[in-house]
Amino acid sequence: MSVKPARPATRTDVARLAGVSTTVVSYVINDGPRRVTSRTRQRVLDAIERLGYRPNANARALKTGETGLIGMVVPEVVNAYFAEFIQALDRAAQTMGSSILLGITYEEAGREERAVRSLVDRGVDSLIYQVDLADQRLYQLGGGDLPRVLLDRSDVVPGMATVGADTEAGARAAVEHLVSHGHERIGYVGSPMAGRKVDLRRVVWDEVLREHGLPGVPPALTSWNREGGYRGARELMASDEPPTAIFAGSDLIGVGVLRALHELGMDVPGDVAVVSFDGTAESAYSWPPLTAVRQPFEEMARRALEVLSERGEAPGSSVFPMQLIVRGSCGCQG
């Protein structure tokens, strides 16, 4: 039961109720710099809960020079891919006593500077970019001392730390899995990439087909959403020699592919098998459930935050393996 005073509780109130000094209370709240015994720490936490004490973020910022805010720039939040990264980052940040503050570009060049500058002006301690900015100078907004990392990038970017999944290996696992089922005509549905990035999924798809001596299938390049997947599948299936399997560049595209195939009266995976990329929660609840290569969202989120805390370290690239999650859309499960 909370025992709240008429005025907001202070650190002194917590110290008095716990029978410790205000310095010890600070050590518990800030998790250091000195160690506090588990028994004393619990007394302080119990006092904080009883009094409903909330540390003053502004006071903390004035004293430490840090706000506890981590800025994250994303193109959108509706896409399950970005939503899962945001959730993983926020969970990890909370364990560190920090919070995620979003800046959304909506994939419009005119909004990019406002999104980044608003985070910098709010005093974020660091920046995570999960977006390809048209104006490359915006990556350096806030000065060279502000820690920053590019998320969803497995390649080396000069002067920037990057964290991403092994896209090439993940795409290869997806396409090789379809080949192992005996498919010879394997289509790809994706979209043109923003900025200077190359769609490694499409590159690897083409490489695997060539390596196995399989006929080339013109890719369907639409947009990175359900509608794009729907249009792409309709385009592929309208060709003179339609594919018997489709590699979808994302889970959202995969969901759109499934709808198009259902409307065309095609059985999945009997007539057309489908494998998607990303492995978000949405892929498990489509019909049939999508076989997908999953990105390790939680591991990459934790690594991104570790990189931000490694001040003074030379920027490097952290690459994580992907996992093939076998479900019903590829033909492995009845």
Rank of each mutant, 00 (worst) to 15 (best):
M1R: 05
S2Q: 13
S2G: 02
A6E: 14
T10P: 11
T10W: 00
R11S: 15
A15Q: 06
V20S: 08
S21K: 03
S21N: 08
T22Q: 15
T23F: 08
V25T: 09
D31F: 06
P33H: 07
R35P: 15
V36T: 11
T37N: 14
S38A: 14
R41L: 06
Q42F: 03
Q42I: 08
V44Y: 08
I48N: 02
I48R: 07
R50Q: 15
P55H: 00
N56M: 00
N58M: 15
A59R: 07
A59G: 15
L62S: 06
G65W: 00
T67I: 05
G71I: 01
V73N: 13
V74F: 07
V78L: 11
A80S: 14
F85I: 13
L89Q: 06
A92L: 10
S98W: 00
S98C: 13
I100H: 03
T105W: 01
T105C: 08
R114N: 15
V116P: 11
V124Q: 06
V124E: 11
L127I: 13
A134M: 05
A134H: 04
A134R: 09
D135F: 03
D135E: 07
R137F: 00
L138T: 08
L138H: 04
L138W: 02
L138F: 00
D145K: 07
P147Y: 04
P147H: 02
P147K: 03
V149S: 05
D152H: 04
R153C: 02
R153A: 00
S154N: 08
D155V: 13
V156S: 12
V157K: 06
P158N: 00
M160W: 01
T167L: 11
A169L: 14
H177M: 07
L178Q: 04
H181T: 13
Y188I: 10
G190F: 02
P192F: 00
A194H: 13
A194G: 12
V198Y: 00
L200V: 10
D206Y: 04
D206F: 03
E207I: 12
R210P: 01
R210Q: 14
E211W: 01
A220C: 14
T222V: 15
Y230N: 07
G232W: 01
A233L: 13
E235H: 15
E241L: 14
P243G: 07
T244A: 12
I253P: 10
V255H: 08
V255M: 14
G256R: 09
V257Y: 06
L258S: 05
A260T: 13
H262W: 12
E263C: 13
M266D: 04
M266Q: 14
V272A: 03
V274A: 02
F277G: 07
D278N: 15
D278G: 08
T280L: 00
S283P: 08
S286V: 14
A292T: 15
Q295W: 02
E298S: 14
E299Y: 06
A304Q: 03
V307A: 04
S309K: 10
P321N: 10
P321G: 06
M322R: 10
Q323N: 11
Q323L: 14
I325D: 12
G328L: 05
C330R: 06
C330G: 12
